[in-house]
Simulated scan of single mutants.
Amino acid sequence: MLDVHRLRLLRELSRQGTIAAAARVCSLTPSAVSQQLAVLEREAGTPLYFRDGRRLVLTEAARVLVEHTEHVLAELERARASVAALTSTVRGVLRLAAFPTAARVLAADAIARCRAAHPDLRVRLSEQETADAVESLRGGRIDVALVYEYSLLPAVREPAVETEPLLTEPLLLALPPGLAAGAGPLELASLADQPWIAASQDDALHQMLARACAAAGFAPRLDFTSSDYTVIFALVRAGLGVSIVPRLALESMSADVALRPVAELELTRTVSAAVRAGSRRGPQIAAMLTALHDVAAELPVTSGAADGSTPVEGDDGGR
């Protein structure tokens, strides 16, 4: 009989490539992971991996097991969700992860709505970027994650995770007032000589900016980075450079920053709710997904200063 816990460890080994990395993701010691995988090899009756330098390479038998493991884990999630759905009361603890902008703009109101509709449901919120949140979701440390992806970049699909798009927001150029003559869309090529400012922990945004600028015929000179959009807007206001920001970040914007759409490309960020495959019918998760969709539907992500160069007042920031 193959043990599901050990199959989960094999799945992590297939992703991480080393025992130490798989152990870190699973919150175990490397020796414990090695022992469990050795038992799994005996259960399977065949070698499951071999060493290639510092990394471990899965055998064909192991790859087959990993493929089936994804289906097994999803079916177990569906079974748990179906059993939980038999009760009429939404109760217990739900663990939600969100990147900072979504935590402020989406999660806060969604949690409040869940609390009002389901007083016995307790929601715990942690701030995590998309890659970390997906790892936490797969590892069972959270139940729902708010994640994002950008246009121009290939979509990354994780078989253990299902996503529900909540909103697609435009990306806008943030400019010092002196560069904002006129109104309407602005060509990226006109900013080729400007220094650029970007979110320091958003590698995907950096990649998208590089691709967009490459399409316009130049490579952006990245002079400043920050993990806080309040700082990014302050640097723009001071005339130290230009930036490209998601529409939801405008709540962080101070006065005297102008916004312009990009002329030649449709640049967007899609924000989604992610759950483990098979788990969305669970009462706690279903309640949170409903609240997130309701809050997202009310957000003016394409209104306000998105269509011109009018400065917008804001408060404090985050991605």
Rank of each mutant, 00 (worst) to 15 (best):
L2N: 12
H5R: 15
H5V: 15
L9Q: 10
E12D: 14
L13G: 11
L13F: 15
L13W: 15
R15Y: 11
R15G: 09
Q16D: 14
A20V: 07
A21L: 02
A23E: 10
V25E: 11
Q35Y: 13
A38D: 12
L48N: 04
L48H: 05
Y49N: 05
Y49M: 12
F50S: 14
G53H: 10
R54H: 10
T59E: 11
E60L: 07
R63Y: 00
V64E: 07
E67V: 02
E67F: 00
L73M: 07
E75M: 05
L76I: 00
R80M: 03
A81I: 03
S82G: 06
A84S: 15
L86Q: 13
V90A: 00
L94A: 02
R95P: 01
A102W: 02
R104P: 08
V105W: 08
A107L: 02
A112Q: 12
A117L: 01
A117C: 11
H118G: 00
P119N: 08
R122D: 00
S126P: 07
S126N: 05
E127M: 15
Q128F: 07
E129R: 01
G140E: 10
A145P: 08
A145W: 06
A145S: 11
L146I: 13
Y148I: 14
E149C: 15
E149S: 15
L153I: 13
V156L: 12
R157V: 06
E158G: 10
V161K: 04
T163M: 13
T163A: 15
P165E: 06
L166H: 08
L173F: 05
G184A: 07
E187D: 09
A189Q: 04
L191M: 07
S200P: 03
Q207I: 10
M208R: 13
C213V: 08
A216V: 14
G217F: 10
G217Y: 13
L222H: 03
D223T: 07
Y229I: 06
T230M: 05
R237W: 02
G239R: 01
G241P: 08
S243M: 03
R247P: 01
A249D: 01
L250V: 03
E251G: 14
S252R: 05
A255Q: 15
V257Y: 04
R260C: 01
E264M: 02
V271E: 05
A277W: 12
S279H: 07
A286K: 02
L292G: 02
H293E: 04
H293W: 00
V295C: 08
V295G: 03
A297C: 04
A297N: 05
L299H: 09
P300M: 04
G304H: 07
D307I: 03
G308P: 07
T310H: 08
G314Y: 04
D315Q: 06
D315K: 10
R319M: 11
R319H: 12
